[in-house]
């Protein structure tokens, strides 16, 4: 019933301590995979972002970006990257001179690139939803629960989406990716707006 297939789980990932990362999600591989995907989507361009914010003298944002990179690298078990991100964050906070900053940025950038490249190569593609016949009553029920969870800011909406992705994709082919992206980013207000819009334009209208 789970939408993520376990078969293609990578054996090793350069720069990532898989057992450590798995322990952060209580050993649940589907959850670890979704965490890795989130990292890939969210951190891919972080080094470039930090460079541009630093050259724009926006050190607050640069520090926060390094801080987030440190936290998310720690979550997935990328310990070396986590360490470099921590050094970088500290360096930005105490405003060290640019010539000292460059090597720290470079080592962070290299470690991040290694992890990103590795993930892009080895992470099994997320199972794409497949078109299925839509049962109106079932759709109505799933949407009602989803609206309820979104209104209550309940994190369980993520799992509800995963469990019903075929149904939702088939019912809302145009809006599905937008709803999914908003839920994955936990921007639940936006997700609610998109879902209600999709419902109005679907077989559920009346």
């Amino acid at each position: 019933m789970t939408a993520i297939q376990d078969g293609a789980f990578p054996e090793t990932l350069a720069g990532i301590d898989i057992p450590l990362g798995l322990s952060r999600v209580l050993g649940k591989k589907p959850r670890y995979l979704s965490l890795l995907r989130k990292f890939l989507a969210g951190q891919k361009d972080t080094a470039a972002h930090i460079r541009s914010t630093l050259s724009a003298n926006d050190t607050d944002t640069a520090e926060r970006l390094a801080h987030t990179a440190k936290g998310t690298a720690g979550n997935i078990g990328a310990s070396r990257l986590e360490g470099y991100a921590a050094e970088l964050e500290q360096a930005i906070r105490i405003a060290i001179p640019p010539e000292t900053m460059v090597p720290l940025l470079n080592q962070f950038d290299e470690a991040l690139s290694e992890v990103i490249t590795e993930l892009e190569a080895k992470l099994p593609p997320e199972r794409s939803p497949e078109p299925v016949g839509v049962d109106t009553e079932q759709l109505r029920d799933v949407c009602a629960r989803m609206v309820q969870l979104l209104k209550e800011d309940d994190a369980a909406v993520d799992e509800l989406l995963t469990m019903n992705s075929d149904l939702l994709f088939s019912a809302f082919p145009r809006e599905f990716n937008g709803i999914k992206a908003a839920i994955r980013a936990f921007d639940l207000d936006a997700a609610l707006a998109r879902l209600e819009q999709a419902m109005r334009e679907s077989i559920l209208k009346s």
Binding site: L35, G42, G71, T72, N75, A155, D158, R184, F186
Partner: peptide, 10 residues
């Protein structure tokens, strides 16, 4: 950070 929210909810 959504990653952290996902992690905590997991």
């Amino acid at each position: 950070t959504p990653d952290n929210l996902l992690l905590m909810s997991n």
